[in-house]
Amino acid sequence: MLSFNRLSVADAEGNLAVNELALLVMLVVVASLLSISVEWHVAAACLWLVHILVSVWLAVVATPELAITKAVTGTTVCLLLIPSLRAFSQARASAGTTGMRRLVVVAGTQATDEPFMLVGAFLAAAAAIALSFAFPLVEGASNFAWYWLTLLGLLLIMLSRDIVRIGLGLLLLLNAVDLLDTMVTRNQGVTAIGARSMVAIVLALALGVIWGRTTSVRSRSEPEELPSLTVADPLPPQRVPLFGGTSFEPPPGAPR
């Protein structure tokens, strides 16, 4: 259930207090911005802020060690993704179209444009509030945060044609399950925490590699049509160009 109490995070005297509701509202705003961001600066900053807000929230509801681990992991993830995000942005700017970021283009639909994603994000927030009241799976904790991140992550993965947004959705989904797991088991072993952090970092590395690879392949010019040396049986007579020959004369009657 949502609980909007003021919880102490800093010291015993209560000088620094964090309102859980304020944290959740900030999380909604930042994650919504992440889902519609086009500029790489905004996306990277929002992703880092999501991790930081989650870590502050973990400091409230769990232990400081977990919060520090989450903050360090999130910062590493963002640092790993920034070069690829920047390369994607530059490649898109040079191409002058959003097609650069789209690995698989589905013709005839524009359903994943930014306004739609914004509406979807707010719908997901409403659904998360309803679910956290109707089905509080983890008792004694706020279920809204992980419901919200789960729904937004799934929304990004399922509705986007943009591989950057799909990757960001995966990171959000990983964060959501991490939150759920932390709320269920507050005192986890160092191996489990380390393994989860390593998964997040390697996921960011894999996303960076795939984004970078896509950028390099797409920005490369189309290769020249090279002659095929494979012919059908029986083998017709043909001349094979040797040592740098770029043209290839097909045999008479062969299909071009």
Partner: peptide
């Protein structure tokens, strides 16, 4: 890249 993206997305969702 296509295969890697599809595999990364779906198998990662499964693992998560």
């Amino acid at each position: 890249g296509v295969a890697g993206t599809a595999y990364l997305t779906l198998a990662s969702i499964g693992a998560i």
